[in-house]
């Protein structure tokens, strides 16, 4: 019995470790390359330099798109929260056909590939004058930001007790007062996590940005795309490392906000909870 036990328990650990190495190796190699001085993309070396970081934080071809990305991610995150918070409050504890239908209506863009959304919006946005504008791309990104923020807030709100809200109402508080003084404080971790998720999704999004941005709104991922396709500068490795750094910080904040269980459930919830 025991040899088989140790063999099987060892095997999933070994396979798991191999998967971790597979998942992290592109990140490690990019960060390594970004600190080198070689002007070529190929292999990392052992010399250390910060010249590529100096370039990305000073050259306008990188700093401009960086600013656009931040503006768009912030705007899209706010828009997503404004739409997702009421939806989560309305649907978290609701049952019945209507609730299922509305839930589907909120979630459906989340399952669509970026390309489909991008192509559809390309033809539509030029008609209504949103093509190439900041609001246009913010709205596009909130198609993914709203569902993810909705999931985060819904998960937290579903675990709260409505007694406090009802008490506030009985004592004469209006719906808005009740929301700001009672409901909002209790769902704040969900709102913060939702804002974070929506921000990260928008900051990383590339397909819709490729189709919908103009030179004055172009985002960092689109610049990376162009650079990867036409001339690979090691400055891309420095930019890529900035993305990795932001991802690491976001995951740490996310773990703080909703914990390991919350993060696990949230990422899996959309596919499992149906």
């Amino acid at each position: 019995m025991s040899p088989r036990w140790s063999l099987s328990s060892l095997s999933y650990r070994v396979l798991g470790l191999a998967t971790v190495i597979f998942l992290l190796s592109p990140l490690v190699i990019v960060v390594w390359l970004s600190f080198g001085s070689s002007p070529y993309m190929a292999k990392p070396s052992l010399d250390f330099s910060l010249r590529w970081y100096e370039e990305i934080f000073t050259a306008s071809r990188w700093t401009g798109p960086f600013q656009h990305s931040l503006i768009i991610a912030a705007g899209s995150s706010v828009l997503s929260l404004l739409l997702a918070t009421p939806a989560a409050l309305g649907l978290a504890k609701a049952q019945g056909r209507r609730a299922v239908g509305l839930n589907f209506g909120v979630m459906v863009p989340f399952f669509m590939p970026g390309l489909i959304l991008a192509v559809g919006l390309l033809m539509f946005a030029s008609r209504i004058g949103l093509s190439g504008t900041f609001p246009g791309i913010m709205i596009a990104h909130s198609l993914w930001g709203t569902p993810i923020a909705y999931l985060a807030i819904r998960a937290v709100y579903a675990g709260t007790d409505t007694a406090a809200e009802e008490a506030a109402r009985v004592l004469g508080a209006g719906p808005l007062r009740t929301f700001f003084l009672v409901t909002l404080p209790s769902i704040l971790p969900g709102v913060a996590a939702g804002a974070l998720f929506a921000f990260v999704i928008s900051f990383n999004e590339f397909m819709m940005s490729l189709f919908l941005t103009a030179p004055r709104t172009v985002t960092l991922p689109v610049v990376i795309w162009t650079s990867l396709r036409y001339e690979v500068s090691p400055a891309v490795a420095a930019i890529a490392s900035v993305f990795i750094g932001i991802s690491v910080i976001a995951v740490i904040i996310g773990l703080r906000l909703v914990g390991t269980r919350g993060l696990l459930q949230l990422t899996a919830a959309d596919a499992v909870k149906k």
Binding site: V28, N204, F206, I224, L228, V251
Partner: peptide
Amino acid sequence: VPLWTNILVLIYG
């Protein structure tokens, strides 16, 4: 962390 990293960064790696 890789899930939240831009896919172009992963492909570049």
